[in-house]
Design a protein around this nucleic acid. Structure first.
Length: 820
RNA sequence: GCCGAAGUGGCGGAAUUGGUAGACGCGCUGGACUUAGGAUCCAGUGGAGCAAUCCGUGGGGGUUCGAGUCCCCCCUUUGGCACCA
């Protein structure tokens, strides 16, 4: 006999209890059998491409951060499906690259063995997470079917003159005997061996992304992306408006020449007291007077040996005088020409005009070498003769002084006027400069797609014909990089020796592989065309599914991956392969998870292994908790203790569904709350505010449980679809249990009835002088006069209002403030 | 140095546009049920005070009838870029 119904327990312990393990296994199998997560790409009527950044399959397995990211995307995708879209949610593996290779080196397992193993482990973990992924379209960047097209992409860029070869410096670790990526150099030291990094010059392949800088910048105004990401890209592209100015001089041999500088502060040209060239500037040789030659040569040698990082981080200014002078085109005066490593050959023209009065670095340099410091700008509190004890860099309030005919100009106007004036004399032109460098894609490594180029003695550089793709990455035992500075592939003559495709004479393959960022710069184009081996992305399916409707990923990729993807898409657009030029219509950066207030790291041993938690709490509770622990776009703090709360919520949902009745009528106030909840959860999911969506459902659950009553069917059932994006397995189970047909994900999001959600009576906040004194229950549409009368009838309010109110502020439906 | 984000109870965090600060959850306190409770359920929970009430969103000013929210000046934490002319 059932005597478990007690006064305090409106939900009798039902015969069935919530067993997430069993339910999740059941539905994962059922989904698989029914093809619930499959999308018919051809026939879809309302395509919606919900993309998440794919993981690199590290050996540690799925990180809770991956799951946090994926779950957030999955919820959005499932919600869009319930809203009537055909949602495509693919996932794959970014399996080439230095991360994977380094791990393979560390454990001494060949990546060709290791990576498939890692992928298998990831796959197992991901399948437990209950993602709505259509695995038929899974890809790995290491699949020859995939990287064949990565190589094809390279060839398209080459064809368009966007890929070129030049000498460039790389980071070299003498201890690891390998080339390092910039990310692997921390504070001038090798991340792993802590050895100082050296710089080496190598011939490398570059993509002309800098040609696209203006477009990459301008388009940012038209795409719906997280502002933080757009800001990061804007800064990275680094547009500077300024002028190129020529300073006439003559070489040691007496020939006339000019030093061109780039400056954003043309207004300060009257304060240009010296010039500085980068040590490697091509004019240095011809400008160095014989008596200075020894010093200059020594300085150049010294800076050449310096590694990139030390040079960038050292603060003390150094430099030497060349012995030559140039003419300041504004003043007509001679100024000395120096060389110093604080001027970078890579930026601008590799030369600057030194304006010590109004630039911090120039000030430091001039102070050290006792060069004249002249004031040419002053603020409101200074005049032309106010001495400069520190550089005056303020522009806004600045006025030009000691600047000849330009005295009295405001900084901005002065800039324009001076450029115009110099331009007339042919010594200046306005110019826009970008900080964005060309993209070096060569890697002297093994684990990547070989760059599809062949060097022939008679034909020169010859691209591999498209029909010969892919250039397979061969299996080699000795994939470890050595101190030769070239890829391990360069040790394999049997591989790199080929006939020239043009003339048939002996040729040599390019032995570098391409950057991992090239692999993942186009994977989203590939997903819908996985399986097509004749084209990288099939025209019709691409037209139907791209650009991506929603892209979610980490902001650590704000500049590299997300910029490169945009670049590649633009190039493909320009070449006529794509109809759009921006790949991701909407992008949202998710936050990152920390654990108990600290960063998760292996050394601290506080890594969350999703397996254990899913085992203990169920995937649904784990997913819901991840979404509840903080705002999705900001991340949050993972606390073991807190998971119980979300699990309790699911337990209660399960119990409510099993304990509900259909006998009496639903409670109107509960129904009102229900419709408010439907609205809120929908709105919150739309703006990725998952934590508040979960809170709203919990709040409703509390409403449902309040008092000693059995919840009505109509009060409970709509909660199932609301919770389904978060707890898909449980929702399916409850949907089936309550007689739903097919998958809940082929049903619809519950409709929200504004009339039902509206309150008849509201609680009006009554303030006196802005301080809350009371809350009164009044009709929703109460008029101001009636509200004042009702408020003054309240004894507490009356006590604070002595005479006649001075002023009344009435916010209908919300608040009444009486100023007494 | 530059660019960005953020400081709210014991903790994670709520608070679309200036309008009830602390939703929701954890934890904690008390209680019910129980052989037991690290299960479940009920009640309470920012601080001070018997109470009326007062004080409270990093600190200091300001605007406003009203400020977590807007403005100015500081402090702290955190992410990114870093001699970018």
């Amino acid at each position: 006999m059932d005597n478990s119904v007690t006064r305090n327990d409106p939900f009798p312990s039902a015969a069935v209890t919530y067993d997430p393990g069993a339910i999740e296994r059941k539905w994962q199998r059922t989904w698989q059998e029914r093809g619930t997560n499959n999308t018919d790409l051809q026939r879809a009527q309302r395509p919606f491409y919900a993309l998440m950044m794919f993981p690199y399959p590290s050996a540690e397995g799925l990180h809770v951060g991956n799951l946090f990211a994926f779950t957030g995307n999955d919820i959005y995708g499932r919600f869009q499906r319930l809203m009537g879209h055909n949602v495509f949610e693919p996932l794959g593996y970014d399996a080439f690259g230095i991360h994977s290779e380094n791990y393979a080196l560390k454990v001494g397992v060949h990546p060709m063995d290791l990576i498939p193993r890692n992928i298998a482990n990831f796959q197992r973990q991901l399948e437990r997470a209950g993602l709505m992924v259509d695995w038929r379209y899974r890809l790995a960047t290491t699949d020859p079917d995939y990287y064949k097209w990565t190589q094809w992409l390279f060839l398209q860029l080459y064809k368009q003159g966007l890929a070129y070869r030049k000498q460039a410096a790389v980071n070299w670790c003498p201890d690891c005997k390998t080339v390092l990526a910039n990310e692997q150099v921390v504070g001038g030291l090798c991340e792993r061996s802590k050895t100082p990094v050296e710089q080496r010059l190598l011939e490398q392949w570059f993509f002309r992304i800098s040609d696209y800088a203006p477009r990459l910048l301008e388009n940012l105004d038209h795409i719906d992306w997280s502002e933080t990401t757009k800001t990061a890209q804007r800064n990275w592209i680094g547009r500077s408006e300024g002028a190129e100015i020529a300073f006439p001089t003559h070489t040691v041999d007496g020939a006339e020449c000019e030093i061109r500088v780039f400056t954003t502060r043309a207004d300060t040209i009257y304060g240009a007291a010296y010039m500085v060239l980068a040590p490697e500037h091509p004019l240095v040789k011809s400008l160095t007077r014989p008596e200075e030659k020894r010093k200059v040569e020594a300085y150049r040698e010294k800076t050449k040996k310096q590694d990139i990082i030390t040079r960038k981080t050292s603060t003390e200014k150094t430099g030497v005088f060349t012995g030559s002078y140039a003419i300041n085109p504004a003043t007509g005066k001679e100024i000395p020409v120096w060389i110093s490593d604080y001027v970078l050959m890579e930026y601008g023209t590799g030369a600057i005009m030194g304006v010590p009065g109004h630039d911090a670095r120039d000030f430091e340099f001039a102070t050290k070498f006792e060069l004249p410091i002249v004031r040419v700008v002053c603020g409101e509190r200074e005049d032309a003769n106010t001495p400069l004890h520190e550089p005056f860099v303020e522009c806004e309030s600045g006025t030009l002084v000691n600047s000849g005919v330009f005295d009295g100009f405001r900084v901005e106007a002065g800039k324009k006027a001076i450029i115009e004036f110099l331009a007339k004399g042919g010594s200046a032109k306005p110019i826009v400069h970008y900080r964005l460098h060309d993209w070096c894609i060569s890697r002297q490594r093994y684990w990547g797609p070989p760059i599809p180029m062949i060097y022939c003695e008679s034909c020169g550089t010859v691209p591999v014909p498209e029909k010969d793709l892919p250039v397979l990455l061969p299996f080699i035992e000795d994939f470890k990089p050595d101190d030769s500075g070239v890829s391990p592939l360069a040790r394999h003559e049997e591989w790199y020796r080929v006939e020239c495709p043009k003339c048939g004479k002996p040729g040599r393959r390019e032995t570098d592989v391409s950057d991992n960022f090239l692999d993942n710069s186009w994977y989203f184009l590939r997903y819908p065309s996985v399986g097509r081996n004749d084209v990288p992305f099939e025209k019709n399916v691409t037209k139907k599914w791209l650009p991506v409707n929603s892209y979610i990923g980490g902001n650590e990729h704000a500049v590299l991956h997300l910029l490169y993807s945009r670049f590649i898409t633009m190039v493909m657009h320009d070449a006529g392969h794509l109809e759009f030029e921006e790949p991701f219509t909407r992008f949202r950066a998710h936050g990152h998870i920390i654990r108990e207030g600290a960063k998760m790291s292996k050394t601290q041993g506080n890594i969350v292994n999703p397996d254990e938690y899913i085992e203990q709490w169920g995937a649904d509770a784990f997913r819901t908790y991840l979404m509840f622990l903080g705002p999705y776009e900001q991340g949050g703090d993972f606390r073991d203790q807190s998971i119980s709360g979300t699990r309790r919520f699911l337990d209660r949902l399960f119990a409510s569904v099993h304990g509900m009745s259909a006998d009496s009528e639903p409670d109107p106030s509960v129904m009102r709350k229900l419709h408010q909840t439907i609205r809120k959860v929908g709105e919150d999911i739309s703006r990725l505010s998952y934590n508040t969506a979960v809170a709203a459902m919990m709040e409703y659950m509390n409403t449902l449980r309040r008092g000693e009553r059995t919840p009505h069917r109509d009060e409970v059932l709509p909660l199932i679809p609301l919770v389904s994006p978060f707890a898909p397995h449980l929702a399916e189970e409850l949907w089936e249990h309550t007689g739903g047909a097919g998958s809940i994900f082929d049903s619809a999001w519950p409709s929200f009835d504004p009339a039902l959600a509206a309150e008849d009576n509201i609680e009006l906040v009554v303030q006196v002088n802005g301080k809350v004194r009371s809350r009164i229950t009044v009709a929703r549409d109460i008029a101001e006069d009636a509200a004042v009368v009702a408020a003054l009838a309240d004894p507490t309010v009356a006590r604070f209002v002595a005479g006649a109110p001075k002023k009344i502020i009435f916010v209908p439906g919300r608040l009444l403030n009486i100023v007494a």
